[in-house]
Structures are given as C-alpha cells and as structure tokens.
C-alpha cells in the first residue's frame, strides 16, 4: 500500500483506492493476442534489419563505385572498352606474326638497336 493507513483514513479515500486496485481491468484475450502478434512481427523486422546491416558495407562499396563512375552510361562505355581491349590483346599477336607487317615492325628503328648496343 503506497500510503500509511492513517494517511488514507485522514482523507477518506483509502477504501476507494483499495477497491480500484482490487478491480483492475484485465486485458481481454483479443488484446493479448494483438500485442503478441505485434511483438512477433516486430521481431521479424528486427532480425531482417540486423541481417541487412551486416550485408550493407559490401553492397555500399559497389554502389559507391557505380555512382562514382557515372551510372549506367559510363558502365556501358567501360564494358565496351574492356571487351575491345581483351579482343585486341588476344587477336594482335597472331596478326603480327606473319608476313610483311612483321618485317616492318622489326626494321623500323635499326639504329636504335646499334646505339643501345654501343653503350656496353
């Protein structure tokens, strides 16, 4: 009891407060079900947010790189350049290994070869 009996007797309200405590309104089964349902739904969200938070840094870096390069137009150009580079890199050696092109490439600066040799 929060107050002494004497205090309550003085103001005449003790019996009313006692009665109020004895007749606390109980929650209905429906309310308990609603509260528990909220709790369970919120737990699902909390778990999902926690999982998303652990995955966010990796996704964030990729996102930042994408935006830094200028979005999808820049990514398309970059992809084209990469593909072209790979194609040139793999196709060129076969082209220069045969015929007059190979001789031209070898003879184009013969003096440089002698100058370099003379330094030793």
């Amino acid at each position: 009891m929060p107050m002494s009996d004497k205090d309550q007797d003085l103001d005449g309200l003790g019996a009313f407060f006692d009665a109020a405590r004895a007749h606390s309104p109980a929650p209905s089964p429906d309310l308990l079900a609603r509260v528990l349902s909220d709790a369970e739904a919120e737990q699902v969200w909390i778990t999902r947010r926690a999982q998303a938070a652990t995955e966010a840094p990796r996704a964030g870096l990729l996102e930042q790189l994408y935006r830094l390069l200028g979005g999808w137009p820049a990514m398309a150009g970059l992809t084209t350049a990469i593909v072209a580079g790979v194609w040139i890199g793999t196709a060129l050696p076969e082209g220069v290994s045969s015929g007059a092109e190979a001789a031209y490439l070898v003879d184009i600066t013969p003096e440089a070869v002698f100058e370099l040799a003379g330094d030793f």
Partner: peptide, 14 residues
C-alpha cells in the same frame, strides 16, 4: 516476447 506480453500488458492496460 511471450513473457513480456503476459507481464506488461495487464499493467499497461490497467
């Protein structure tokens, strides 16, 4: 979740 619901709901409701 169940214990907190059963413990706190009556107090909060009252």
């Amino acid at each position: 979740a169940r214990i907190l619901t059963l413990r706190l709901t009556p107090r909060v409701m009252a």
